[in-house]
Amino acid sequence: MTGVPRWTGREIRALRTALRMNGRSFADAVGVSHRMLVRWEAGGEAVVPRAGNQAALDTMLATAGRAVQERFAALNTAAAAAAEDARAEQLLRRETQYTKSPVDGKLMVPVEEGIYLAGPAGTPTWTAAYLIDVYPTTNADYERFIRATGHPAPRHWPNGRCPADIFDHPVVWVTWSDAAAYAQWAGKTLPTSQQWEKAARGPKGNPYPWGDAPTAAKCNVHDSGIGRTTPVSRYQSGVSPYGAYDMCGNVWEWTATEPEPGRHELKGSAFTSPFTRAAPALFNDAADRMSDNDTGFRCASPA
């Protein structure tokens, strides 16, 4: 379990909830008065306890056990993902600009023709106009595909059926060929690495979909401590300038770009990745036949 860089009232409330302790018992365990705990939790992110209390909270989390740590991670990142974010709210109000793909029914967002700043060096790069899926391909999306085509199901589905609790999670255990087959069925393609990166960073080449700040709480990466995929619509505060979700974290995504024969680029990082690997500009690739529990895809099409 990755530690907490700085405890605030928000993380303290999440830990108490994960431990399933009442306020007085939790305050006793930390070594503070119940009144102090109430003040911490009411203050939220504006309250930062002193160093001794921070150390006590570190110890409580470290010794709490795996189940508590998982609950804490889920509560803490969910709160960050759902927090009010004026920029995200503005983007979400652009619903009328979205279109629905006629075959798989997925929402797609338009990306205009023009130059964007690509790669770590911010190289001016031109792309034609295109559409890209708002969300990664989910297990529910993929199940419709295999029912329509007879394509083999991912290896982690019991008896070839998607478990109900991961319908809205990104599909994983898919090779590049699996992803390309889905895209062909849906009348779309896999995005090139340039298309994917522009949709993630915007025309100004933001380091992250949400802007400049390296904020791990806005995506599902290893630092979040969740240890598995999450629903594709969860991280509203991490949405890209074009309105695309999960462009950092959750799962790596296959692209159409082939740096050498038999290999294709992957973009975006995953729940298994350290946040240092999450920037959309970074390079990664894999053999086409590779499949694992942290790799999926989304589709694109001409505008």
Rank of each mutant, 00 (worst) to 15 (best):
E112T: 03
Y182W: 04
R87K: 09
L37V: 04
Q97T: 08
T96V: 10
E70R: 05
Y245V: 01
R228P: 00
R20Y: 00
W254P: 06
T127D: 02
V38W: 02
A287E: 15
T138H: 03
Y235D: 05
I166A: 02
P136W: 02
Y242T: 09
T255H: 09
G122L: 13
A129K: 08
P120L: 11
L61D: 06
D133I: 01
S101K: 01
G225M: 04
P136H: 01
G202A: 07
E112Y: 06
E260K: 14
G296Y: 01
P280Q: 07
T125P: 04
N139L: 01
V174L: 08
D285P: 01
D141R: 10
D178V: 01
T2G: 03
P231I: 04
A42M: 03
Y130H: 10
V174C: 07
F26Y: 06
P203A: 13
D292L: 05
W157A: 13
K188F: 03
A55L: 13
V171N: 02
R10F: 10
A79D: 12
G114F: 06
R87T: 11
E112F: 04
R277L: 11
Q69K: 05
L92D: 05
T8K: 11
F145G: 09
D223L: 06
L131H: 11
Y142D: 00
N159T: 08
M108K: 14
A80G: 14
A200V: 06
T215N: 12
S101T: 10
S291R: 13
S273M: 08
Y142I: 09
P191H: 08
S237Q: 03
A148Y: 03
M21T: 13
S101W: 00
G3M: 12
D168N: 15
T272G: 06
R71M: 02
V232K: 04
T255F: 10
G119A: 12
Q195Y: 03
W40N: 03
G65F: 07
G262D: 01
T138P: 05
E11H: 12
R298P: 05
W210K: 04
W126H: 15
G44S: 07
Q69S: 07
R298G: 08
A55V: 13
T127V: 04
W40P: 05
N159R: 15
D85A: 04
K100D: 00
G238S: 08
T125C: 07
D85K: 11
G187H: 13
A42T: 11
A56T: 09
S240N: 06
